[in-house]
Design a protein around this nucleic acid. Structure first.
Lengths: 243, 243
DNA sequence: TACTGTGAATGAGTTCACAGCC
DNA sequence: GGCTGTGAACTCATTCACAGTA
């Protein structure tokens, strides 16, 4: 039996006022049972969502697989395969309903609810992250910050209380935190991740350039600029453009 | 005919002395002709490099597919397939030569030379990036900053001169810049990317949450935190751990 | 008419399982 | 003995091509 974490769908929807698709009444209409989404498609969902939201803001109500594909550098047939999984938003001869898709994608991605989130590490990066609007927009509610610098402990930043790292075991359970942002140096990162796992954290966004090796225990997403630079260099060296 | 950009391998090779494959005389001895690396493998090279460098620092000289796989959450056979492409670093019964692989990976990724790099946008993010050590470590040499805020133009930051955005066309050609870091808001990003493409920039690291749509013209790597958060939420919602 | 949705064909990537070598 | 390297089998992903429909 699988026991999957799920976001809290309490009170307010994370800040958007653009009206989304149909009725807001129905409680749970999983358009697609998430398990049905192949990994390759899943890896593109975020991009689809981003582009569709641009169209939504621009007032475009309908988008063709062809146009979306050209923007993203994907083939039209691939777009159709992917979007057909949510099957109901495409109309033959017309295109796809943008706002309906946006809503379905947010639901499929799990960013249509709220995630109780903690931040570990208040260095340059951590401080910048506290100010990043995107967290709220994706439903990540920052509830506590943990930091080792004693001069910061006990104060708060942007209304978020700052605790000592040693308080993790005491505070995290009572916050019912599901997500953690790990913005600490390489050294302490794996041990901290271990503690977060033991505390029942379900997902870690890891900025430390090291593998946390918690596969099958905690979902992790690594953000490592060095790796991105390598990706770029590789792409450039292998750009086989004939022209 | 394909015309691929390549890093400037001027003067010093960033610290390597281990000999790669055959004779060092021949001009280009790509241990692996880069085109031979399948896309799926390429996407893992950065991770391999990062982990191997940790081992290297720790003094480990040899690593088994099994151990590396467990750290990265990959199967041992997949590791072997991938690393066999560089074939010469594995010894049966023993494992892979860490330092040899590190060097081969850096070469394959294109981070063993230097890339002339410019930064566009000196907001919070841009400023943080100027201070990021990783650029240098991956061979990205920051040569100029372009910014619209008139009070900054003409000054410099960490020794890097700051120009106005309007000077792009004048300055970029004489710098022979190959890479650009785009750290500007969504609004101006696509138009700027267009100008960079016209200036012959080969690669863009894009922090603006929008698709630049320069496929087949310029290699781009997007870094979009919102997309990473969505990835994390999706991974958590779909974490089908049975325990 | 102009698009989507989708079987069928192709291609890419991964795993299995074991021979080959250190 | 214990690992890597790799054919062969398999699974997953993409593209083709066209029937189906607004």
């Amino acid at each position: 039996m699988s026991e999957m974490p799920s976001p809290e769908s309490d009170s307010e929807q994370p800040g958007d006022s653009v009206k989304l698709g149909a009725d807001a009444a129905s409680e749970a209409i999983p358009s697609v049972r998430s398990g049905d989404i192949p990994a390759a498609t899943a890896s593109r969902l975020g991009l689809y969502l981003r582009e569709l939201q641009h169209f939504l803001r621009g007032g475009t109500e309908t988008i063709k697989s062809n146009a979306l594909g050209r923007r993203l550098g994907l083939s039209d047939s691939q777009i159709r395969r992917d979007l057909a999984l949510f099957g109901e938003f495409g109309k033959r001869g017309v295109g796809y309903n943008v706002s309906g898709l946006v809503q379905a994608l947010r639901r499929a991605l799990g960013t249509d609810g709220n995630w109780n989130t903690i931040l570990i590490g208040l260095g340059n990066l951590g401080t910048a992250l506290v100010r990043y609007r995107g967290f709220r927009e994706q439903g990540f509610r920052l509830q506590a910050i943990f930091e080792s610098d004693a001069t910061k402990i006990g104060t708060e930043l942007d209304g978020i209380p700052i605790y000592g790292i040693d308080d993790l075991e005491q505070i995290v359970p009572r916050l019912n935190a599901q997500m953690a942002i790990l913005a600490v140096p390489v050294g302490p990162a794996p041990a901290l991740a271990r503690r977060l796992a033991d505390l029942g954290i379900a997902g870690i966004l890891n900025f430390a350039p090291v593998s946390l090796a918690l596969h099958d225990e905690v979902s992790t997403v690594d953000v490592d600029l060095a790796v991105e630079l390598q990706r770029l260099a590789f792409a450039v060296v292998n750009s086989d453009r004939s022209s």
